[in-house]
């Protein structure tokens, strides 16, 4: 399972303040905590605090001073990404591009040249899809375009776009259905990733909703998650769901083995 630590994001007040004040320490603390929790990538997002590549590069470099975990660059502007990719010490995961031809034609060469991986949202010019079918259609466009550009499936992450349960209750089922169909694109299939916290947006019992939905996503074939890697119960849910799906070999100490 590919775990992408979500915490270095200007959506959180402390990180926002850290970017504004160029306070490395807060960012590095979160990097260390998430690294310790075994994140596979650390997402780095400067939100609306800045639109300067130099600020994003500063964040990435600050993270890399304290850990060697690869970066997930959370930005969709090609000019900024070109700069940010250069400072990454390990091949990054670019987060993200949409299923719009022009955008993909701009983004995929950068992905290919830099050896990066890319998260592709199944969203096109008409906005976020409402049905499983539309999600699969857009994912198909992405998949074909990525192949045209010579991007390997192992570097391709498809994101079905998670909608809040609180406001769009009919969507979760469509998302699960779409995820299952993404797994049929190729063998081995592309990675399937989701921004988990969207599902519980605006709810009271956030953590519980996150965990249950995660198990259901994994049951349908998801193998990467942007989430709170410090939520132990969430991580244990992931480990258990993988066993249930026979994607890992069972051993009594499966949780201890992960934590070691």
């Amino acid at each position: 399972m590919i775990l992408i630590g979500e915490r270095i994001n200007a959506g959180f007040k402390d990180v926002k303040a850290a970017i504004e004040q160029k306070d490395k320490k807060t960012i590095q603390e979160w990097a260390k905590k998430q690294a310790h929790a075994k994140a596979s990538y650390l997402d780095v997002n400067m939100g609306a605090v800045s639109n300067k590549a130099s600020d994003l590069c500063w964040m990435i470099e600050s993270v890399q001073e304290v850990t060697d975990i690869p970066i997930s660059i959370d930005n969709s502007k090609i000019d900024i990404l070109k700069e940010a990719v250069k400072v990454c010490q390990k091949p990054p995961l670019i987060n993200s591009v949409t299923a719009v031809d022009d955008k993909m034609d701009e983004m995929f060469p950068l992905v290919k040249e830099s050896g990066a991986s890319i998260i592709c949202l199944v969203m096109d010019a008409s906005g976020s899809p409402k049905s499983a079918d539309k999600r699969v259609e857009n994912a198909g466009k992405i998949f074909v375009k990525a192949m045209e550009h010579g991007i390997q499936t192992e570097n391709l992450f498809i994101d079905p776009i998670i909608m809040p349960l609180r406001y769009m209750q009919d969507q979760a089922k469509e998302i699960l259905n779409a995820v299952k169909q993404f797994t049929l694109f190729s063998d081995p299939p592309p990675h399937i990733v989701a921004g988990l916290s969207n599902i519980s947006n605006g709810t009271v019992h956030k953590k519980f909703i996150n965990r249950v939905f995660t198990a259901m996503l994994i049951a349908n074939g998801l193998d990467a998650l942007i989430c709170d890697v410090l939520d132990n119960d969430l991580i244990h849910t992931i480990l258990t769901a993988k066993l249930v799906m026979n994607r890992e070999i069972f051993a009594d100490s499966f949780i201890e083995a992960f934590e070691k």
């Binding site: 070999i249 051993a251 009594d252 100490s253 201890e256 083995a257």
Partner: peptide, 14 residues
């Protein structure tokens, strides 16, 4: 028993 096989490896590593 592949499950015990994995378990003994975890124990040895621990």
């Amino acid at each position: 028993d592949i499950n015990i096989g994995k378990q003994i490896n975890i124990l040895i590593q621990d």
